[in-house]
Design a protein around this nucleic acid. Structure first.
Length: 518
RNA sequence: GCCACUUUAGCUCAGCUGGUAGAGCAACUGAUUUGUAAUCAGUAGGUCGUUGGUUCGAUUCCGACAAGUGGCUCCA
């Protein structure tokens, strides 16, 4: 197509008979397939020069308006987005009204790549993967492990405050439990194949809920025990298809910020709302604002296949969840066919640096598993009832959450999450002893500090430390040593003047315990 | 899993049409003793993802497998 020459795009409404004839003559099975789903009055053709095609439009008036084009990538795509269909080749491209805007767009994409968690994860020694370990299996390096432990600390504090109790469960379970839970028929293809021991099949757990249900069931419960909230950073294994794996965002072994709340129908709305509030509290800590809350509903056409066949319960609980969202005042979108098999949910959707969409956190209703596991509690009038269950993971999984945080902060983690919080930089080796004293004092105040003892110039030490995104650098030379001070440099902000060690410890400790968001 | 592409030193990458490999940074050694984003010199480091094939000869050409990447499908 020569788009530098100005040709008009001509729109023409056409009858179905005529359209079918046109594409039959051209022997175009795909357009004929599309026409099958269209009727008279909604069929339009567009013609540009000698090229005519079926298209709903709209189009720009003429090719002269196209100023800058770049073909970006090429990929296979299933016809009509269904993997049962044949795969066609799709060519992707972008166009802008001017070359300048195109260049800006491309520069923006380059910038985005710099904050890709896979690049940062390597640069900052957060995690690694290894062929001998396997695809999608993350090895958390010491730096990444510090982040994990800080997140778990936050979760424990928050959950303790919210009345949760902590539990620990094994990584495997017998087949019978997943038949009870319904995961096996509904979820089998996402689970690792079973291993056999003593004539029994064992599965790696793909989720923690069944194990937690067993804890609920272990002792009799009464309405006085409700709501019963149990939490665990549970390790799950999911057999994601090889092509779906993506850095930390999509892996095969994941650590979920999981918890289950067993409650009565009367308690449900309040409990569900409390979970939602917990999300918002967390998002405030991390300064997360670019997300979309998605109310994920069932698809009535797939009842009994993808979704448990309880049409009234679906509608009832969906209404409850919708009300919580409306009450909270958080904007949300509703999407049919995204619910879990056991109930509707609220998903928090975020986008990776390269623009891929992920569910970061999830808050789910479950009206099915309570019955499947025959969970019950004694009511006030001495009858029994089945609890409603809330599955929630506000911090998602360590893998996805840390992947997200790396991109969100462009590697510049807030001080409380930084693997190294302070780097002490002696100007020459004459000051190493004093630097070590300072570092020791910081460590005693629970601050993660290191000394750069390398025989390098201060400029080099600063540069390397800046690149590692260590939030605070303490430059130490003759002046600081004799006066018992430190020269404080904040990552990305430069020299901020001198302080006594105690002043510095006081300031940074506050920043850490209050979890300042940079 | 499907379509396409990629895989060379710890990292980032060179290596025209086949003749067993280079750079910068990092590492190590030495010199230098440094004041807010890279001091200098030297040394070491690779059966070129794995495995078959073609060839006198393969990092280079072809196939299979693996991992990664861009999408599709799927998902926390």
């Amino acid at each position: 197509m020569n788009w530098r020459r100005r040709t008009m795009y001509i729109r023409k409404e056409i009858s179905k008979t005529e359209a079918v004839k046109y594409f039959t003559d051209k022997n175009d099975e795909y357009k004929l397939d599309l026409l099958g789903g269209l009727s008279d009055g909604e069929i339009t053709f567009y013609t540009q020069g000698e090229f005519t095609d079926l298209c709903r439009g709209p189009h720009i008036p003429n090719t002269g308006m196209i100023k800058a084009v770049k073909l970006t990538n090429i990929a296979g795509a299933y016809w009509k987005g269904d993997e049962k269909n044949k795969q066609l080749t799709r060519v992707y491209g972008v166009t802008f009204p001017s070359q300048k805007e195109l260049d800006e767009h491309l520069a923006m994409l380059e910038e985005a790549k710099k904050r890709d968690h896979r690049k940062l994860g390597k640069e900052l020694s957060i995690y690694t993967m290894d062929d001998d370990v396997g695809p999608g299996l993350i090895l958390w390096m010491p730096n990444g492990t510090i982040i994990i432990e800080e997140l778990e600390k936050l979760a424990k504090e928050t959950e303790l405050d919210a009345g949760y109790k902590r539990v620990v469960t094994p990584h495997i379970a017998k087949e019978s439990m997943y038949i009870t839970s319904g995961h096996l028929p509904y979820y089998a293809e996402s689970m690792f194949p079973p291993m056999e021991m003593d004539g029994e099949k064992y599965y790696l757990k793909a989720m923690n809920c069944p194990h937690h249900h067993k804890i609920f069931a272990a002792e009799p419960k009464s309405y006085r025990d409700m709501p019963y909230r149990i939490a665990e950073y549970g390790t799950c294994y999911r057999y994601e298809q090889s092509g779906e794996l993506f850095g930390l965002m999509r892996v095969r072994c994941l650590h979920m910020n999981d918890a289950h709340i067993y409650c009565t129908k009367e308690q449900f709305a309040q409990e569900f709302k409390a979970v939602n509030d917990m999300y918002l509290k967390y998002f405030k800590i991390f300064g997360i604002d670019k997300y979309v809350m998605r109310l994920s509903l069932h698809d009535p056409e797939k009842l009994g296949q993808k979704y448990v066949n309880e049409p009234e319960l679906w509608l009832e609980t969906e209404e409850l969840v919708r009300n919580v969202l409306i009450e909270t005042g958080v904007p949300f979108v509703e999407v049919k066919g995204e619910g879990a098999f056991y109930g509707p949910k609220i998903d928090v959707q975020i986008w990776s640096a390269i623009g891929r969409e992920f569910t970061l956190a999830t808050n789910q209703v479950d009206f099915a598993q309570g019955r499947r596991f025959k969970l019950e509690f004694t009511t006030q009038d001495n009858t029994t009832d089945t609890p409603l269950i809330i599955h929630r993971a506000p911090l998602g999984t360590h893998e996805r959450f840390i992947g997200f945080l790396l991109e969100h902060y462009a590697g510049k983690l807030p001080v409380w999450l930084s693997p190294v919080q302070v780097k002490v930089l002696p100007i020459s080796d004459k000051y190493i002893d004093y630097a070590k004293q300072v570092s020791l004092k910081l460590k005693k105040a629970d601050i993660r500090a290191e000394v750069d003892e390398r025989n390098e110039k201060i400029g080099k030490k600063i540069r390397d430390t800046e690149l590692l995104r260590v939030p605070y650098m303490l430059v130490i030379g003759e002046k600081e040593m004799t006066e018992g001070m430190v020269a404080v440099r904040r990552q990305g902000k430069g020299d901020t003047g001198t302080q006594t060690v105690d002043e510095f410890i006081h300031a940074i400790s506050g920043e850490i315990t209050e979890r300042h968001d940079n």
